[in-house]
């Protein structure tokens, strides 16, 4: 079935290394996106007209542009036009954070405006000042709504990292392709075995994350 190839030499290690690269890039991007997304979402909820227009434009760009195009622009475009050479991994992190911040910001804004005014007021009416109201009443509610939504975003980011092989990064899918190329003659079914393994690896990473989100959603709903 082609699985035997994986046990030849360092093949399996190479797949795992590829997975490691993909996870590293997505985790760094997720971290940046969460922090910047919280700031962006809070700013957007303030309903300042200038911020509203700018963030609308930003979100539209992110929605319209395929991530691949963004990757090419940052990795190839910037070095051509401006002479700045951005390494492939950094380009990937920039693009994924650019995308993730927009999505995260939108989620945070949605959660913030979904908390009814009366929640703030009933807290004030109990003598809680603004900081305590946010700390004990508003933020816990926002986090409960946000976590399942942002986990969904995280798994999508992990899956989308397969695009980064287009700018030469050897992540798990690229490593798999290399292994297939090298072993095509000796084992005719290598493609099946390798892709099945890659599938399994993605599954092993994303499945526990989405289970966690389901669990949290149930507990907090």
């Amino acid at each position: 079935m082609g699985f035997e190839v994986l046990f030849k030499g360092t093949n399996f290690i190479r797949l795992l290394e590829g997975l490691g690269v993909a996870l590293r890039i997505s985790m760094i991007s997720v971290g940046i996106s969460i922090v910047l997304g919280m700031i962006l979402g809070t700013l957007m909820s303030l309903k300042n007209p200038v911020i509203t227009v700018l963030s609308r434009i930003y979100l539209e760009i992110v929605h319209i542009m395929p991530q691949m195009v963004l990757l090419f622009i940052v990795f190839f475009g910037f070095s051509k036009v401006m002479g700045i050479n951005i390494p492939a991994e950094a380009s990937a992190i920039i693009v994924f954070s650019f995308w993730g911040t927009a999505e995260m910001g939108d989620l945070v804004r949605g959660c913030l405006i979904s908390i009814p005014m009366i929640q703030y007021e009933s807290s004030y009416a109990l003598g809680m000042r603004r900081s305590k109201t946010y700390l004990y009443v508003i933020i816990p509610q926002i986090i409960r709504r946000l976590i399942p939504l942002s986990i969904n975003l995280i798994t999508r980011m992990i899956k989308t990292t397969s695009l980064i092989m287009m700018i030469g990064i050897v992540e798990v899918l690229k490593a798999g392709q290399q292994i297939i190329e090298a072993n095509r003659r000796t084992s005719p079914h290598v493609a099946f075995g390798v892709f099945a393994t890659v599938f399994l690896l993605y599954f092993l990473v994303c499945w526990p994350i989405s289970q966690l989100s389901k669990y949290l959603e149930k507990r907090w709903s």
Binding site: P116, I118, Q119, E121, S122, S123, Y124, A125, L126, G127, M128, R129, Y136, V137, P140, Q141, R144, W220
Partner: peptide, 29 residues
């Protein structure tokens, strides 16, 4: 906030904090 501690208010809409139990709602403030 000191003054509001001395004035209790109950609203028309159910305004309990949904992420806290009834006891926690009562004991928070």
């Amino acid at each position: 906030t000191r003054i509001r501690e001395r004035i209790g208010m109950v609203f028309q809409s159910y305004d309990l904090f949904p992420h806290k139990t009834i006891l926690e709602n009562v004991t928070l403030a």
